[in-house]
Structures are given as C-alpha cells and as structure tokens.
Design a protein around this nucleic acid. Structure first.
Lengths: 131, 131
DNA sequence: CTAGAATATACGTGTCAAGGCATACAAAGC
DNA sequence: GCTTTGTATGCCTTGACACGTATATTCTAG
C-alpha cells in the first residue's frame, strides 16, 4: 500500500481528507462527524500520516491532524496527462454535434450527413473496420 | 469495486490508461508494450470497460480499446476541493520563508527568531499547545 | 496517586480482488 | 474443413486490507 492511489481508494480515508480540507481536527472530532469507530479512524489516520497525506500535532491528550498537499498533488500530476485528451475529446464532440442534424426549426431539406457505421451505446462494442 | 478510485488503484490499469492516451490499441499491443500476460490484460480491460473508462471496437479478430474521459474527470472533480487548500498552503509557505533567516550575505547580527517548540522531522509529531 | 478521557495498538476474522494457468470462443486464411 | 491468431473466461490460490473487540498507552484533573 505504498502508492498514492491505493491510499485514496478507501472511502473513509477520502472522507477524512475532505474533512481536513476545512481545518485541522482531532481524532474524536473526526470520529463524531463521520460516525466511524475510533480505532478505525486511528488506523486510517496512521496510514495517511505514514503516507504523508497528513501530519499531526499534540495538544494535551488530543492529536490534531491536518492536511499536507504534496501527495494529493501527485494524483493531480498523474491526471495531467489526460487533460490534453479531454480537450481534444470535447472538441471532437463539438464537431460531431455540429455535423448532426438538429431537430429544430428551419430544417435543411435533404442534406442527410453520412451515417457513421453503427453506433450502439454504452458497454457495447462498435463495429469498425471489418472490411 | 465500483468507485473510480478503486479502479485506478491498480498499477496495471493505470499503465493501460496511460498507454491509451496516445491512441487506441489492441489487446495484443497492450500486452506486448506492458509485458503483461494476455489474460491479465483482458481482465483489466474488462474492468475498465465496465467502469466506463474505455470502450472497444471490433476490428477483425482484434479489439481496439480507446479512452473515455468521463470517469477520469470524476477524479479531477474530487481533487478540485483540495486545490484551494494548495494555493493557501503555498502562500503560507512563502510567508514562512519570508520570516526565516536567510543564510545569504548581509546577515543580520543577533536576530534569532523565536524557535518553534521542537521540530522533529518527517512522521514526527509537532508539539503544539501543551500549555 | 487515582480516575477518566483521548488515542493508539494487537489480534482474530471475513471479504475481495489479482494473478497464473488452462481452456473456450471467434474470426481469418489456406 | 482445419489451423492459426487474437481475445475472453473459468477456476483456484494467495495475499491485502478493513473491521470489531479488547487492551495498552499517555496525558489531565482532582
């Protein structure tokens, strides 16, 4: 469980991180807000701390945990490689919509655009180059 | 294994996604580039497809897989809540550096700034408000 | 010094998913 | 038809890891 992604795969850990975005919190506060048993909270905090997502300060018997940005930025960095793709994809979608027949008024007469082979949706496969 | 984060927690799956950013690929091509046994590749592709990360087209006996942006954008959306925090944190760091003694030339004489209680590094806790 | 509050850790258990291997399925080419 | 190529699936084992419960640790207060 070293990788950033395995760490944030756990829903409770993500919840904890989301909590800490606002301000530092003690274990008990986290426990109460998220309704998670205390040992579970402590274990997740340990994982998060050892992974460098959070750090803690001692305040009497309390421990205050707060966010550290570095590791989450790693996720952001990994995601970066796909951003180019997104914009390209959005452009393609727009071009596609532009090519589509609009069911609005002032409809063109016979200008049927060339149909794409066949478009079956979601989870389906698209037959492509079967020539 | 429904959540976006569990899906991308698997290193091979992340590798596959990174590959597909450039262009669509057949199972065999992925297998050869990543040096992963073919059944493993197929299983991961199945997971990715059912989760909506990729889609496939049939090309003769090949299947060409390509990226779909939506799910990865969900990760980006989750990450968004932390971006505010990052900039705030960077600002704080800058202010901190400004307050620090610079070990450069034209050094002040005895102006030792107040030491923070004790600062033990990495994984350590910071003693805070123990008064 | 004792009681209690806040947090951490240990241990046992169940679940789930990844990987290896064999095999099934499908289309192509001869 | 049969063989080859490309891909999917089934079964089994193994290893993480999350959780619950109990207990240890540490600090405070009185």
């Amino acid at each position: 469980m070293e990788s950033v992604f395995e760490i944030i795969a756990e829903p409770n850990r993500r919840a904890i991180l989301s909590l800490l975005v606002f301000s530092q919190q003690s274990v008990g506060e986290i426990e109460r807000q998220l309704r998670i048993p205390q040992p579970t909270v402590s274990k997740h905090l340990r994982v998060l701390r050892e992974a460098g997502f959070v750090e803690s300060s001692v305040d009497a018997q309390r421990r205050l945990y707060r966010l550290k940005p570095k590791r989450l930025q790693e996720v952001d960095a990994w995601l970066a490689q796909f951003r180019r793709f997104w914009s390209a994809h959005v452009d393609a979608l727009e071009r596609h919509l532009d090519r589509m027949d609009r069911p609005t008024s002032t409809q063109r007469k016979t200008s049927r655009r060339r149909r794409r082979p066949n478009r079956e949706r979601d989870e389906g496969e698209t037959r492509w180059r079967s020539n």
